[in-house]
């Protein structure tokens, strides 16, 4: 077991999760990011490396850019805990990142582009 000395990660640390079997390392997400927070993986085909996590603005541009829909934007825990909704008839509370969540709501956004 080897450990390294390195500074603490920034506050929000895992801002993006890459779906291992979808991401082919095309780096289109790297190149669309306004703040350039990612860099291509030195290993060809590897998923990009997030270097400047605290500069991420959570605009979601990378998620929309990915041709294989391999990216999930992970908002910081403090946002996940602040955005809560109540199911009206049952009074149950839900939030992003909760355990045993309800089934996804598949209604697409308005607009046909």
């Amino acid at each position: 077991m080897v450990a390294y000395s390195h500074p603490s990660q920034s506050g929000p640390c895992r801002i993006l999760s890459f779906d291992k079997n979808k991401c082919v390392g095309c780096n289109s997400c790297v190149n669309v990011c306004p703040s350039d927070v990612m860099m291509p993986n030195p290993v060809r085909g590897g998923e990009p490396i997030v270097v400047f996590a605290e500069e991420c603005w959570y605009c979601g541009g990378c998620v929309e850019e990915c041709p294989r829909d391999a990216l999930t934007l992970v908002t910081p825990a403090k946002q996940r805990l602040s955005t809560v909704w109540l199911r009206k008839d049952t009074g149950e509370e839900f939030r992003v990142g909760m355990r045993n969540p309800p089934p996804p709501n598949l209604t697409p956004p308005s607009g046909n582009r």
């Binding site: 992970v74 825990a77 602040s82």
Partner: peptide, 18 residues
């Protein structure tokens, strides 16, 4: 896991503030 100690602490602070 994917949550660091600072991220958890920021979330704790937000809950206590609210």
């Amino acid at each position: 896991g994917d949550v660091g100690w600072k991220e958890l602490n920021y979330a704790i602070a937000k809950i206590m503030q609210d």
